[in-house]
Write a protein that binds this DNA or RNA. Structure first.
Length: 857
DNA sequence: ACCGCCGGGTGCC
DNA sequence: ACCGCCGGGTGCC
C-alpha cells in the first residue's frame, strides 16, 4: 500500500532541497544517507594491538570502524570491532589521525574488511571503503592527502559486478565479462513482487488444528499459518545466512564465525493481506503453542446442577518458572477489535486471563502482567511508559511471546514507539502487518531488528549486506533479500490459492461514479468562492509565496470541497489572507485556525522532521505544522538561531502554538443548528439512491461516508424524515459508544439500522462492517488509499454480497480535478518502486501543476 | 666516536 | 615480532 498524498510536508521538504540540513533529517545523528552514497575509493591500512583484545576475525570478514574520541592515549583513536561487536584492535595511529576528522564530520562512512583476518597475533591489514555523497568527495580526498594517504579508485565494475565492496565480505571475484545493466523500475518492481511469490509454496502448506480452547473452526489457510507459526516458534533451525561448519557456525554474508549456535528467530512476520484472519491465527497460536507444542493450560468453566458457575483450576504451568504471558501491542484503533475477537474465538468453556494495559489505572506492578495469559496494550502506551525510563512495567516483564500488530507502525527507527518495541524482552517475537515492505527496503529494518535476527540488529550490517546491495543493484542483492524475507515471512494475498482454490472467496467489488450537478444557487456560491480563492492563489504564484501560504491554499481547496457537499459546511469564511498587523491574541487565534485547517483538510499531513503522522501537532509562526517533540529537538540542537526546517524562517519555542482541542477536528465547525436545515444537490442524490435501494432490497445495509462530520450531521435530518433507521460512527465518539454503534449496525435483527454514517478515517483497519454491502462516498479523499481502506471495512472476510460503491462527484468542480490527480497518482504508485527520487525542481513543478490543475489556473 | 655496529629490550591507541 | 625501533655498550687489524 502506498501513500498517495501529494500535499505532504516531506515532499515540500525535498522540493526545497533541504535534505542535507542535519537538523532536519538527522535529529538523532543515526540517520545515514544511504540512497545517494557513492564509493569514493578504497585504502589499505593496518589494525594494531590485536593481542590486547579478545575479538577474533576470519579472512575476509567485515569489521566495523568506530571512533573512540575518549581514548586517553589518542583522541583520534579508531576502534576496530568484529561483527559481534567485540574489539579486534585499533587503526594504526597515523591513519587514525586522517580518519578521525572525516568520520567525526560525517563526510564519509568508512567500512572495513580484513582480507587476512585469521591467525594474526599483533597486526593485520584492513581494506577500507569510503562512502559518501558526491559533493563531499573532494573534501574527503583532501583530508586524506593532508595526512599522506591516497584512495585507490573503486575496483572496476564496482556498482554491480564485484561483490566484496558492498555486499558480502569476500573473497574478491574477478569482474564479469559483460557490462552490468541497471534494472529498470518495472524490473525492480517485479523482482520485488517475487519476494513473496514463492511463499505460498514450499514448506508452508502443512496444516495444523487449533487447540480445544480455540472456539472457532480455522479455515485451511489459517491452519497453514498456525502450523507455520508453531514450527517457527519450536524449530531449532539456523537463522538465514548461517552455516554449520566443523565446530563453529559461519555467517556467509559477513564471514563472521562463532562457536555458539546462533539462536533462530522464534517468530517472524505474518504479512497476510487484510481480512485473511491474522488476529484469529494469532489467537490460535497463543492457545495452541505454550511449551513444546503443548497448548496453553487454562481454566475450564463448569456449571454444576445448581446452575452456579465455578472455575475448575488446572495445573497452570508445565515447567516451573518460564514466562507465561503473551504481550500484544497494537494501535488504539484496533484494541477493541482484539478484545472482541478474543471473546469470539476463545471457546466458551474456558477462561483465559486477559489484561488490557491501557488507561490511567493500568497496573504498575510487573508481576500483575506476568501472571496473565495475554496482555494487550497500544504503541502509545508502550512508548509513553518507556519514556519514563526504568519504570515501565512492560519492559520489566520477560514475555513468553511479543506480538506487534500493524507492525509497519515501527518502520521509523528513530521513533520512540520503535525504540520501545525493540527493547521489550521475550524470545518469541512476531510482527503482524498487511504491508511488509511499503515501498522501500528501508522500512524492513526495524522489523528485522525487532525480531533480533543476527547480525541485522545493528544497522551497519543490515545496510552493508542487504540494503545497499539491493538499492545499488549489486549482483545477488535482491536474491539475498528474497531468501531473508522468505525465511521469516508468511504472506498470502486475497487472491492466493490453497489447493487450487482461492484462499478467500470475496464477492465482487464495483466502484461507480455518480456525477452530481449543483443547483443554480449552489453554483453561484461555489463560483464566487472559487473566484476569490483563485485570485488569492494567483497572487501567491505571482509573488512566489505559494509555500508560505500553504495552509491558505489548502483552506481554499477545502472550502470548495465543502461547497460541493453542502453550503452550510463552509461557514467560517474569514477570508483573511493578508493580515499582518495583529494583536498577539489575534495572531494566536489565526495560527490555531490555520493548524486546524491543515489537520482537517484531509491532506494527510506528515511531520517533516520524523515523517510520521502528526501526533502532538504544533504550528510555527511561519505556519508550518510539526510534531511538538520534533520541532523542540530542532530548536534545541540548532540554538540559538534555529530555523524552520521547511522555510528557514526564524523559529522560537515561545512562538509555537499547540493544538488546543481534544475533540475531533472538523474545520466546518458548524454553528450548530442555528441555521435552518436545508438540503443540497449531493444530499438529494444520496437520498434518491437510498430510497431506491430500500425499495429494491429492503434488507440491504449501507455506509454513508464523508470526511466532514458536520456533513454527516446534516444528512441525519432527511434520514429521519424518510424513516431510515441509522447509526453513526466517527472519531469523536468514546470507545464504548463506537462499540455499541458497530454491534448495532452489524446485527441482523429486524429493525436494526440499515444506514451507518461513517467518517472516512474512523476506526482504522480493524473495523469490521461487513453487514453493509453498499457504500456511498460523499466526497473524494486526497489519498485514494484512505478510500480503499474504507471500502475494505465491508469488503472483507465475512461479506456475503457483492459490494457496490458509489462515489458522488460534483460536475465541473474541484472534486473532478481531484479524481484526475488521484488517477494519475494511482498509476504512478503502481509503477514506482525504489526509483531515484525525482529532482527537487521536478517535485516542485509537479506540485505547482497540481495546485494549478485543482483550481483551474 | 658529535660516528657505525652490535645485540638486548621491547611492542596499540 | 623470523619485524622495526629504541638506547646502551662499544670501538683497528
Amino acid at each position: 500500500e502506498r501513500n498517495y498524498s501529494w500535499f505532504s510536508s516531506s515532499d515540500f521538504y525535498s522540493s526545497l532541497g533541504l535534505e542535507d540540513f542535519p537538523s532536519v533529517g538527522d535529529i538523532s545523528g543515526t540517520d545515514e544517507d544511504t540512497e545517494s552514497a557513492i564509493l569514493y575509493g578504497t585504502l589499505r591500512g593496518s589494525v594494531v594491538g590485536l593481542r590486547y583484545y579478545t575479538g577474533i576475525v576470519n579472512n575476509n570478514e567485515m569489521v566495523a570502524l568506530q571512533r573512540e574520541p575518549s581514548n586517553p592515549y589518542d583522541k583520534n583513536a579508531v576502534r576496530v570491532n568484529n561483527v559481534n561487536g567485540d574489539q579486534v584492535g585499533h587503526i594504526k595511529k597515523e591513519l587514525a589521525a586522517a580518519l578521525a576528522g572525516i568520520m567525526d564530520s560525517k563526510l564519509a562512512v568508512v567500512e572495513g574488511v580484513v582480507p587476512y583476518g585469521a591467525k594474526n597475533v599483533f597486526t593485520m591489514p584492513v581494506q577500507m571503503s569510503f562512502w559518501g555523497r558526491e559533493e563531499n568527495r573532494e573534501a574527503v580526498l583532501d583530508q586524506l592527502k593532508k595526512h599522506g594517504f591516497k584512495l585507490a579508485p573503486p575496483p572496476k565494475g564496482n556498482r554491480f559486478g564485484s561483490k566484496w565492496i558492498s555486499g558480502r565480505a569476500g573473497p574478491s571475484y574477478s569482474a564479469p565479462v559483460h557490462a552490468a545493466v541497471q534494472l529498470t523500475t518495472e524490473q525492480l518492481k517485479s523482482e520485488f513482487d517475487k519476494l513473496f511469490e514463492d511463499l505460498k509454496e514450499d514448506d508452508k502448506t502443512c496444516e495444523m488444528e487449533g487447540a480445544e480452547t480455540v472456539g472457532t473452526l480455522l479455515l485451511p489457510h489459517q491452519k497453514q499459518a498456525l502450523a507455520w507459526m508453531v514450527s517457527r516458534e519450536n524449530s531449532n533451525d539456523l537463522p538465514p545466512f548461517w552455516e554449520e561448519r566443523s565446530n563453529f557456525y559461519y555467517n556467509i554474508l559477513t564471514n563472521f564465525a562463532e562457536e555458539k549456535r546462533p539462536e533462530n528467530v522464534r517468530g517472524g512476520i505474518l504479512a497476510d493481506d487484510m481480512g485473511l484472519g491474522k488476529t484469529l491465527t494469532t489467537i490460535a497460536l497463543i492457545l495452541t503453542n505454550f511449551q513444546d507444542g503443548k497448548p496453553l493450560p487454562v481454566e475450564r468453566i463448569t456449571n454444576d446442577k445448581f446452575c452456579t458457575t465455578s472455575i475448575q483450576s488446572v495445573e497452570k504451568k508445565y515447567s516451573d518458572d518460564g514466562p507465561r504471558a503473551t504481550l500484544i501491542v497494537c494501535p488504539l484503533s484496533v484494541l477493541s477489535s482484539w478484545i472482541d475477537q478474543f471473546e469470539q474465538h476463545i471457546h466458551q468453556d474456558f477462561h483465559v486471563n486477559i489484561y488490557v494495559y491501557y488507561g490511567s489505572d493500568r497496573s504498575k506492578d510487573p508481576s500483575v502482567l506476568s501472571e496473565q495469559d495475554i496482555v494487550l496494550t497500544t504503541y502509545n502506551i508502550l512508548a509513553t511508559d518507556y519514556g519514563m525510563r526504568g519504570d515501565s512495567p512492560l519492559h520489566r516483564v520477560k514475555w513468553l511471546r511479543i506480538v506487534l500488530d500493524e507492525g509497519h507502525t515501527i518502520r521509523n527507527p528513530n521513533a520512540q514507539q520503535t525504540k520501545a518495541a525493540l527493547n521489550l524482552e521475550g524470545h518469541r517475537r512476531w510482527v503482524l502487518t498487511g504491508t511488509p515492505i511499503q515501498n522501500s527496503v528501508k522500512d524492513l529494518w526495524s522489523l528485522i531488528s525487532f525480531l533480533k535476527l543476527k547480525p541485522f540488529t545493528d544497522r551497519e550490517w543490515w545496510h552493508r549486506t542487504i540494503q545497499r546491495p539491493v538499492t545499488m543493484g549489486t549482483a545477488g542483492g535482491l536474491g539475498r533479500l528474497q531468501s531473508l524475507v522468505r525465511s521469516i515471512t508468511l504472506r498470502r494475498t486475497k487472491t492466493s490459492k490453497v489447493k487450487g482454490k482461492p484462499v478467500l472467496e470475496l464477492p465482487e467489488r464495483k466502484v461507480l461514479i455518480q456525477h452530481v450537478t449543483l443547483t443554480e444557487e449552489e453554483r453561484q456560491v461555489y463560483q464566487s468562492m472559487k473566484k476569490e480563492g483563485k485570485a488569492a492563489i494567483s497572487r501567491f504564484f505571482s509573488e512566489g509565496t505559494v509555500l508560505a501560504h500553504y495552509a491558505d491554499i489548502l483552506g481554499v481547496l477545502l472550502r470548495l470541497r465543502q461547497l460541493c457537499c453542502h453550503p452550510h459546511l463552509c461557514v467560517n469564511t474569514s477570508s483573511s489572507f493578508s493580515a499582518d498587523n495583529k494583536t498577539p491574541e489575534e495572531l494566536h487565534e489565526t495560527l490555531v485556525n490555520k493548524m486546524k485547517l491543515v489537520l482537517s483538510s484531509g491532506s494527510d499531513e506528515e511531520c517533516a522532521v520524523c515523517l510520521e503522522s502528526l501526533t502532538v501537532p504544533v504550528i510555527t509562526r511561519c505556519v508550518h505544522v510539526f510534531c511538538k517533540p520534533c520541532i523542540f529537538e530542532v530548536i534545541r540542537s540548532e540554538q540559538p538561531n534555529a530555523k524552520c526546517p521547511l522555510c528557514r524562517n526564524e523559529l522560537r519555542v515561545e512562538h509555537l502554538v499547540e493544538c488546543p482541542l481534544e475533540e475531533e477536528i472538523d474545520s466546518s465547525n458548524g454553528k450548530k443548528s442555528d441555521q435552518e436545515w436545508m438540503s443540497s444537490s449531493k444530499i438529494n442524490a444520496l437520498m434518491h439512491a437510498l430510497i431506491e435501494l430500500r425499495r429494491d432490497s429492503p434488507n440491504a445495509k449501507c455506509l454513508v461516508v464523508s470526511q466532514f462530520t458536520t456533513f454527516l450531521s446534516l444528512i441525519e435530518n432527511p434520514l429521519k424524515e424518510s424513516g431510515f433507521a441509522f447509526t453513526r460512527l466517527d472519531g469523536s465518539m468514546a470507545q464504548k459508544k463506537r462499540v455499541e454503534a458497530i454491534q448495532c449496525f452489524q446485527s441482523s435483527q429486524a429493525g436494526s439500522p440499515t444506514v451507518m454514517l461513517l467518517s472516512l478515517k474512523a476506526g482504522g483497519v480493524g473495523l469490521n462492517l461487513t453487514a453493509a454491502s453498499r457504500v456511498f462516498l460523499m466526497d473524494p479523499a486526497w489519498n485514494p488509499a484512505a478510500e480503499d481502506q474504507c471500502f475494505d471495512r465491508c469488503h472483507r472476510l465475512g461479506q456475503k454480497h457483492d459490494v457496490v460503491i458509489t462515489k458522488f462527484i460534483v460536475k465541473d468542480s474541484v472534486e473532478e480535478n481531484m479524481m484526475k490527480i488521484q488517477n494519475k497518482k494511482r498509476e504512478l504508485a503502481a509503477g514506482a518502486f525504489a526509483t531515484k527520487k525525482p529532482s527537487a525542481s521536478e517535485v516542485k513543478q509537479t506540485k505547482i501543476n497540481e495546485i494549478k490543475a485543482l483550481i483551474d489556473l
